[in-house]
Amino acid sequence: MELFNVILIVFLIVSAIAVERTKDLLGAVIIFTAYSLVMSLLWLLLRAPDVAMTEAAIGAGITTILFVAVISRTGRMEK
């Protein structure tokens, strides 16, 4: 189980760096969504189901919808 936690944390670090480095804004939103879902899984493993549900609903749900709506009204690629 400890190895699984380490893998999740490494994934979080890699995805955080990938979000910062990507020039495609929609790709960054997708990576950020994966980050939020893995973070909610980690909260669940830490026995905080209320925080996990909040992270999944707000971090992966509402924030993704808002980011995609904004990107649809602006340009997809960063200048």
Rank of each mutant, 00 (worst) to 15 (best):
M1V: 14
M1G: 15
E2V: 15
E2P: 05
L3E: 15
F4S: 15
N5P: 12
V6P: 08
V6M: 15
V6F: 14
I7M: 14
I7N: 14
I7K: 15
L8E: 03
V10D: 13
V10T: 15
L12S: 06
I13A: 14
I13W: 07
I13S: 11
I13E: 09
V14R: 08
V14Y: 06
S15E: 00
S15R: 03
A16N: 14
I17K: 13
I17A: 15
I17R: 10
V19C: 01
V19D: 01
E20P: 07
R21D: 07
T22A: 06
K23E: 03
D24V: 09
L25W: 00
L25C: 07
L26P: 01
L26S: 04
L26W: 10
G27R: 10
G27T: 12
G27E: 00
A28Q: 08
I30L: 08
I30C: 04
I30F: 12
I31W: 04
I31G: 03
I31Y: 05
F32W: 03
F32Q: 04
F32P: 01
A34Y: 01
A34V: 12
S36G: 00
S36E: 02
S36V: 05
M39F: 05
S40V: 12
L41T: 12
L41D: 03
L42H: 06
W43K: 03
W43C: 10
L45S: 13
L45K: 11
L45I: 12
L46M: 13
L46E: 12
L46A: 13
L46W: 09
R47N: 10
R47D: 05
R47G: 02
A48H: 10
D50P: 05
D50F: 09
D50A: 09
V51L: 09
V51R: 00
V51W: 01
V51S: 02
A52W: 01
T54M: 13
T54L: 13
E55M: 12
E55G: 02
E55W: 00
E55L: 02
A57R: 02
G59R: 05
G59A: 08
G59I: 09
G59L: 07
A60H: 11
I62W: 14
I62K: 06
T63Q: 08
T64K: 03
T64M: 07
T64R: 09
I65R: 04
L66T: 02
L66W: 04
L66I: 07
L66E: 04
F67Q: 04
F67M: 12
A69Q: 13
A69T: 12
A69F: 07
V70N: 03
V70P: 09
V70R: 03
V70C: 02
I71Y: 05
I71G: 01
I71M: 00
S72P: 01
S72F: 11
S72R: 14
R73I: 02
T74M: 08
T74E: 06
T74N: 12
G75P: 02
G75L: 05
R76S: 06
M77F: 07
M77A: 04
M77N: 11
E78H: 06
E78Q: 06
K79M: 01
K79G: 01
